[in-house]
């Protein structure tokens, strides 16, 4: 029983890491209808930039500030050079554009900082601590705390600030938002910057976990089933979906995986999300955008 609980808690905590990446997607999808495949590349860029600066003896806080600045510049550039010229194109075209974008960012970050693996130490001990008879990774707890804080900040931002209000208006109805004088390009810049910040936070956490290297950009593939499950446009869905996928994946890995000789984590999350969607096509919290056929 303890073992089951331990697996479950471990899964839930790794699910938090998935949620972190998924939130970046949700922010952009909600306000501009773009499925941003470049989220993984942004995450890689942020982590790589930060770790390279720290290795060059730049103080922690300064490195963080510089990386943040870089993410802001990237957000501005994306809006100006990719989104604005492609306005009113079908979603699939925009998706393709973000694929192109992810090539550009991946290539640029490796050209800039090299392709070797960097270790990233955030100064958090990864030793497991014992609580109520089960072992929990301290780092995972820390990550969960950060994720919680970030979600709280996002919720406050959406509810309490004017920009957040504009975000919600645009997400609700772009034309109506335009007609009350909200400047769409500005909102898009802001939302891409926000996604950049999310990419930075999740990049640092994932980087500390896996090492900062190219494969970091592949964590998007972990976030996609979470999005399908939770709904592309729901922050709450990203959280709950992440927890569900994380827990289901770990349980399956331990209890079902051995039947197939292991290695099922590559596809299990997708199949689980699919099975769920066959029952509930709009996901957990997604708006009823997925029409019934």
């Amino acid at each position: 029983m303890d073992f089951l609980l331990e697996v479950l808690v471990g899964g839930l905590l790794s699910g938090v890491m998935y949620s972190l990446v998924a939130i970046g997607f949700v922010l952009i999808y909600k306000t501009s209808g773009v499925l941003n495949f470049a989220q993984g590349a942004q995450l890689l860029f942020a982590a790589l930039t930060f770790v390279s600066l720290v290795e060059r003896e730049v103080p922690f806080v300064a490195a963080l500030a510089i990386t943040l600045g870089a993410m802001v510049v990237i957000g501005l550039a994306i809006e100006r050079f990719v989104l604005r010229p492609l306005v009113n194109q079908p979603p699939i075209t925009l998706f393709m554009a973000t694929l192109g974008l992810s090539y550009v960012i991946e290539g640029a970050s490796q050209l800039l900082w090299g392709a070797q693996v960097h270790g990233l130490d955030l100064g958090i001990d990864d030793a497991p601590i014992e609580a109520a008879g089960i072992f929990i990774s301290q780092f995972d707890l820390f990550a969960a705390g950060i994720a919680g804080a970030m979600v709280l900040a996002l919720v406050l931002f959406f509810r309490k600030t004017r920009t957040g209000l504009a975000f919600r208006a645009v997400a609700d109805d772009q034309v109506a938002a335009l007609s009350v004088g909200i400047r769409l390009p500005r909102v898009w810049v802001a939302v891409w910057i926000a996604a950049g910040v999310v990419a930075l936070v999740s990049g640092l956490l994932w980087g500390a976990r896996l090492g900062v290297q190219f494969s970091l950009s592949l964590v998007v593939l972990k976030a996609l089933p979470v999005l399908v499950l939770g709904g592309f446009d729901s922050v709450a869905g990203a959280i709950v979906g992440g927890l569900l996928i994380g827990a289901a994946e770990k349980l399956a890995e331990v209890y079902i995986g051995p039947l197939f000789g292991g290695g099922i984590e590559g596809w299990f999350a997708y199949v689980a999300a699919l099975a769920f969607l066959l029952v509930r096509p709009s996901g957990l919290f997604g708006q009823k955008l997925v029409e019934r056929v």
Binding site: F95, L224, F232, Y270, L277, L278, P281, G283, V290, V293
Partner: peptide, 14 residues
């Protein structure tokens, strides 16, 4: 049969 758009696209990744 039940999904559309990006939900379907991501499902095909399965």
């Amino acid at each position: 049969l039940r999904l559309k758009g990006f939900y379907l696209a991501v499902s095909t990744l399965a």
